[in-house]
Design a binder for these strands. Structure first.
Lengths: 144, 144
DNA sequence: AATGAAACCCGGCGGGT
DNA sequence: ACCCGCCGGGTTTCATT
């Protein structure tokens, strides 16, 4: 993982449809060498996958909220139950006053309410504190 | 935006390197028709871009935290100042007791502290409440 | 680990149904 | 809108250094 790899990662994060030739030119390498480096980055798991980024609003997911979930028991093994709620985009075990933090996207606030109801249905959950997003200033990839 | 489009989106979200032929076979369409549909989805902005997903830990970003930022004045126009801190991955204006919620990835907790210091340097910021992530249960794309 | 050449396959585009 | 067929270019591999 040298500096060239990091530059390649940065380029692929903003547009993974670039050709290896163009990519190589940007970092001063041949297409074949570039291909080999990227292949290794995939193999090592540095590049998890290459995915299409979908606009949430365009697929009817205009409401975004972060929900702190309080629990009376350990929730670190409740991943599957949380994943069963498809509107939950991320779930993290956190330190602090809450046990889990989830990121939720729904079509409407009514549907958000349904998700909160669903959270209460999970064993040990004793409370939720939702923070509703009014406007997203920016979302960007990690800077290697 | 019919059901076929949604299936295409789901497939492209999990692997955008698939060929249009394979994609078309999965939804019962020819490669050309599939290509046309995906082109339109891009044109309409439903597909924002296709990007490589990088493992944060692999690029030395092992610490994740969500920070609620309190402010004494309106922070909805502070996007640029927040974006100037490269460790901030997302920034949202929120309803509730805080004004802004940011997602921060750093190499160490010391660096996280630096980011918090940086936040206090922004005009109007009066406080921060950080929630540190111990373990990420899952992160997945939006389900169309 | 990088290069250049070569084979193969895919993306992109026309025309037609 | 979808399907078929063609063509240029990119991906992918291999021998070589």
């Amino acid at each position: 993982m040298d500096d060239t790899d990091r530059r390649l990662l940065a380029l692929l994060q903003e547009d993974a449809t670039r050709s290896y030739a163009a990519l190589g030119q940007a970092v001063g390498l041949s297409a074949a060498a570039t291909h080999e480096r990227v292949r290794k980055l995939r193999e090592q798991g540095v590049i998890r996958r290459t995915a299409a980024e979908v606009d949430p609003a365009a697929v009817g997911k205009g409401v975004l909220a972060f929900v702190l979930v309080d629990a009376t028991s350990w929730m670190g093994d409740s991943g599957a139950e949380l994943a069963a709620l498809p509107e939950i985009e991320e779930a993290h075990v956190v330190a602090g006053s809450a046990s889990v933090l989830v990121k939720v996207r729904t079509s409407t606030t009514e549907r958000l309410q349904d998700v909160l109801r669903g959270l209460y249905g999970i064993d040990g959950v004793s409370g939720t504190r939702a923070t509703v997003v009014l406007d997203t200033l920016f979302e960007r990839p990690v800077t290697p």
